[in-house]
Design a protein around this nucleic acid. Structure first.
Lengths: 194, 194
DNA sequence: TTAAAAAGCGTAACAGCTCAACTTTCTGAG
DNA sequence: CTCAGAAAGTTGAGCTGTTACGCTTTTTAA
């Protein structure tokens, strides 16, 4: 099952070559300074082929991984320890994720810098990330015994997913994350936390 | 001061002609089925002129109004009655806004349908709307005696502004709005409201 | 009166993306 | 083993949004 024939191996190789070439060129000269024609050339394929592999367009070339995040989100809600609230569970999941990932792969640094400096990529990343909203909302709703499309659950899922996006670029991301989840857990107090 | 010379009057007229032509064509045949060249033709203007009037591109042709919303937001926070919380104030402001606007202008209906059916326009509308985040966050921060860029205030501003976007497309927008602001005011309870 | 500012024009081009028609390569069922 | 067909790839043309360039015309203001 898991082993793939020559065909799929070649396909994966081409895809990888495209993603690698793109990331290298982007990191070198900036996202907007590199055209898709050039990327296709660098990977020695035609432009049409490039778009067969990445139908979502130029931006998708940068996001080659990003699997199983949805499962992790749902699991964080479903399998949280007893007595822990849903916001707490998500808060914990997001804490320190950044530094953990940077530590795992050195290239991940270029990747983040690239995204942070390119508005189009920031937007795209956000959209990809928010795709999990529905699944997360459903998990929360099931947990709370509410209908699948309950607006409150959808809102909590949405806001929680936006938290990591919001804290990026602030002076102290960890503190900012704490403030946001405090808001989601306890509501707006209007008073300084002390 | 308020009276403008022939020059500015003509400019405004051209701009209006473009916006009108665009809205009509879009409503007729759908956003993606109408090209910018055709719109320019319909307004009897060259394509370059069109882009001089709407430098933000095709999407901007649809959003011709939308002034003073920012001032209204800030005022809602600053001039709210004593004893009313910030979330309450914003909640009140958003309540019934939809029906009020539809009542004011019959064409507003087409406008909304168009936006709801076109992903590119939805995205653009959201971005325009969220531009006020900074101003709103500053107003909230000032009110609470916190620094301008306090993450909690920014988060509240962001979430509040997203509320109207989130409730669109739900079965009962008014109820959904209530739920969202209940979350922002009191935090996540995990229990049915009853 | 006149010079600069601003609106507009047409052409040409670029970038992202798609389409159509065709070739090559692999797969799998008979 | 073979052969039909699916899937990857190619080429090339073309569409759409958008911008740059160089030019003419109108309006303004000194």
């Amino acid at each position: 099952m898991t082993e793939m024939g020559r065909r799929e191996r070649k396909k994966a190789a081409t895809r990888q070559a495209l993603a690698d070439a793109a990331l290298r060129l982007f990191a070198d000269r900036g996202y907007d300074e590199v055209g898709v024609r050039e990327i296709a050339d660098a990977a020695d394929v035609s432009v049409t082929t490039l778009f067969k592999h990445f139908p979502d367009g130029k931006e998708a070339l940068v996001f080659d991984q990003d699997v199983d995040r949805e499962a992790a989100l749902v699991a964080a809600v479903r399998e949280r320890p007893a007595g822990q609230s849903v916001p707490e569970a998500l808060h914990r999941m997001f804490q320190g994720e950044h530094s953990r990932r940077v530590h795992a792969d050195p290239r991940f640094d270029d990747f983040l810098r690239l995204i942070d400096t390119t508005p189009a990529l920031r937007e795209y990343a956000r959209r990809m990330w928010l795709r999990h909203e529905h699944a997360l909302a459903a998990a929360i709703a099931e947990d709370a015994g509410l209908p699948d499309d309950d607006p409150g659950c959808r809102a909590l899922a949405h806001f929680a997913l936006e938290a990591p996006v919001l804290v990026r670029g602030t002076g102290d991301p960890d503190a900012a994350l704490d403030r946001i989840f405090d808001l989601l857990a306890n509501g707006w107090t209007g008073e300084r936390v002390g």
